[in-house]
Design a protein around this nucleic acid. Structure first.
Lengths: 338, 338
DNA sequence: ATGAAAGCGCTAACAA
DNA sequence: TTGTTAGCGCTTTCAT
């Protein structure tokens, strides 16, 4: 192992100068800087993270916390954040909460206590008050992406606004029999997004003078398969069948498209479908959707976090930062049948 | 921050005893062990990873390296490995190679050199000789999952055997006009799996006395969309249309199913389709497939790695470890039309 | 079985 | 601008 001493010797300076030259902290003459750079290069020297962390209290490592990984949104957000962190010389420790309760607890009580990280990006997490407290007690900056976290700076979609937009898109096409597919009850217990999306949907309807009907609401589990089965139910009954479905997520919306096809309905002639997400499969299925950008969201979270990590002047950042979204109109929506 | 000294004082022992008691290395009396445990608990003490790493040379951290994240297989493998590592008290650092060349190089030349990890699990990676050398030079154990890595202990699917099995399944149903959808040329340049799968397919055909036809091969990019377009091509020409397609991955196979539907073909009456993977969507689409188990593969890799990390007696592990797979017959395959 | 003490490789006062 | 040096919090010899 090549150490800072080897570099110092080779460059003909002290270890302190090497440290300063390589980290950019503290004054170093141009000449010394160059000698150090040459020596470090020649020897292939890289600072030992543990020694550096121990001495400085900074780890150059950020924790990425996700409820689970195997879903488009989380993966994309992690990927975006990780790329951005790497560009800034940070490593990434992955904390995945998808295990059992015991594993989840041990993340908070053990893993996070190991002083391995300078800060945390919490992706689409819903935390218990207990867990929130533990996070705060770490005394390290935390930035959330999605899933509003109490007292934590968080990037959030305006779920009500996007649901209104989706619903208004359908209304503007002339639809009046608009169903909504949201979260099923159990799913919603620890996740508020579905509720907010339903609220936006109902607001838009009422503003158009339409009273939302309970029969036009259907709960599913945010998967293609769940959306498929729920849509069969919604569309199978020929009496008073809706002419449009607004699904709270693209995966369910894709399930709706497939169900409609299997029922012999032509999208969008017989039924219009809108989703939310801009999922990687949405273009392929011609799905009209409200796109959000998890990769960019991850990068954005990194910017905010690194800004807080930088000593001194912190740019003022509000507690809730609204995220970008776009209505992408494709071929799954059209005017309702006569 | 509560340090080992605080614990030592509270337990009325030396820091050395605390270290030994908590780590389980070295002799400690039952009484001392208990006093230490109580004190540590009461104070909520957790060892500082950097101090421990610096002193011991062990980081209790493993690197997970993936070519990219946003694909079912990689995500599932990472999730499996990460859960297993957590159970053993290890943290996970994620190295994602999906950025540009510069980022990729910096993973090898910088990130991996930071002494942050005890070992590496390389998931479905194809490495340049250069990169392999760098990995080896780290002097740390490496275990591969998929993608045969020279000189590295690797868990691999027998791609030839599974392709033969898939093809033989179709042959046994009576099919003779069997097409194969594999990787397109560019895709294959740095990834050998598609080639091996094609080899298995051709072997099975020849053994059945059928000469593989070039028109029955189609290259795509391993996505649903790519599979869809390639299948349109394969199935659109009514002259001498194949009665079955063996796709080298479920996502392409799902694309084939959707393409067949759009062409008015009924699966499996008019066309049989087999995939490989056991993708999360395969059950929903009724796809017959050869399932593999990335989550279990990740866990398995962890077992092997941790075994090498354990001092002393290493169970003998061969360089190539074959992985489990199963033929799952669903509703996308049947006897060919008369 | 336990404690004293010497590092592990680096950073950051402080002095020059 | 540079070097000297005292830690950072832990592990691990070496005595006892």
């Amino acid at each position: 192992m090549v150490s800072i001493e080897d570099v110092a010797r080779r460059a003909g300076v002290s270890t302190a100068t090497v440290s300063r030259a390589l980290s950019g902290n503290g004054p170093v003459s141009a000449k010394a800087r160059e000698k150090v750079a040459d020596a470090a290069n020649a020897l292939g020297y890289v600072v030992s993270s543990s020694a550096s962390s121990l001495a400085s209290g900074r780890t150059k490592n950020v924790g990425l916390m996700v409820p689970y990984l195997a879903r488009w949104f989380f993966t994309a957000a992690v990927e975006g954040a990780q790329q951005a962190l790497m560009r800034h010389g940070y490593d990434v420790t992955l904390y995945n909460l998808s295990g059992g309760t015991a594993e989840r607890d041990s993340v908070f009580e053990v893993s996070l206590q190991r002083q391995r990280i300078d800060g945390i990006i919490a992706i689409a997490l819903e935390l218990s008050p207990q867990e929130s407290a533990t996070l705060h007690a770490l005394g390290k900056p935390v930035v959330g992406v999605g899933g509003p976290l109490e007292g934590i700076r968080t990037l959030t979609l305006d779920d009500i606004a996007i649901s209104r937009l989706a619903t208004e898109h359908l209304l503007s096409l002339g639809h009046t029999r608009i169903a909504h597919m949201g979260g099923s009850e159990t799913y919603d217990l620890d996740f508020h997004i579905p509720t907010n999306r339903r609220v936006g949907y109902e607001m838009a309807l009422r503003e158009a003078g339409i009273e939302p009907k309970p029969e036009y609401f259907s709960g599913a589990d945010f998967t293609i398969e769940g959306g498929y089965h729920a849509a069969k139910q919604l569309l199978g009954d020929p009496r008073d069948r809706p002419t449009a479905i607004f699904a709270a997520a693209d995966e369910m919306a894709i399930g709706c498209i497939l169900a409609a096809r299997d029922l012999g309905l032509v999208v969008p002639r017989d039924i219009s479908i809108v989703g939310i997400d801009g999922h990687e499969l949405s273009a392929f299925f011609g799905l009209t959707t409200i796109a959000q950008y998890p990769g960019a969201q991850g990068e954005h979270a990194v910017d905010i976090l690194l800004n807080e990590l930088r000593p001194g002047k912190h740019a003022e950042v509000p507690e809730n930062i609204p995220l970008d979204y776009d209505l992408i109109v494709r071929s799954s929506t059209a005017r309702p049948p006569e």
